[in-house]
């Protein structure tokens, strides 16, 4: 595999930002590719985890934030568990996600950032997740109303999804937590 890094343009490499957010030292990776071999989504992505690290080592800039792995990664922790150097790759993925959202990288297939916002919004409002509202907000944003609609009737019948909003959480404290993070 050949990795091409664009030359000429003054790209600011982002390795130090990633290392700081994830608390890792990526120079320790010696490209054994154990992470990519165990990664469940390696076959579904253009750039498996070890390649992301190599690109970062070679001076990749913001363009890496559009890599599909960043949002296909299921946070399964296999890469971290098996890395002989103990590199916390799952946290590297989290760092790349934070940077991708902050620097407005292209919207990934499935719009996972929207799903995350919808999820956290219900937590912020109710202190706990409210599946029905979260799913509706996500489906509205992605225009995927029909997906999984076939399962809804039996889920309702089996009371497998709550209709009423969750109650009982200490909403005040949860709000304070969200506020403290947004004002950071």
């Amino acid at each position: 595999m050949t990795i091409r890094i664009k030359k000429g343009k003054a790209v600011k490499n982002i390795i130090s930002a990633v290392e700081e957010l994830a608390g890792v030292d990526l120079s320790e990776c010696y490209q054994c590719k154990k992470c990519s071999c165990g990664c469940p989504v390696s076959g579904h992505t253009k750039s498996p985890p070890s390649e992301i690290i190599r690109r970062l080592q070679l001076g990749a800039g913001d363009e890496i934030l559009s890599s599909d792995i960043i949002w296909i990664c299921s946070s399964c922790e296999t890469c971290f568990a098996r890395c002989p150097m103990g590199i916390d790759m799952a946290s590297v993925m989290d760092a790349l996600r934070v940077l991708a959202v902050k620097r407005q990288a292209a919207k990934p297939k499935g719009d996972i950032p929207l799903f995350n916002r919808a999820f956290l919004k219900t937590v912020n409002m109710f202190g706990r997740t409210y599946d029905l509202v979260m799913i509706a907000a996500y489906k509205m944003g992605t225009l995927t109303f029909m997906n999984d609609m076939d399962k809804f009737p039996s889920m309702l019948k089996k009371r497998k999804i709550a209709i009423l909003p969750p109650r009982g959480a200490d909403k005040k404290t949860v709000k304070r937590i969200f506020d403290s993070v947004s004002h950071k």
Partner: peptide
């Protein structure tokens, strides 16, 4: 008063 743990959306958003 227990609350949501934040699950994956939280760790993908902010440490």
């Amino acid at each position: 008063g227990w609350s949501c743990c934040g699950a994956t959306p939280a760790h993908q958003t902010d440490r």
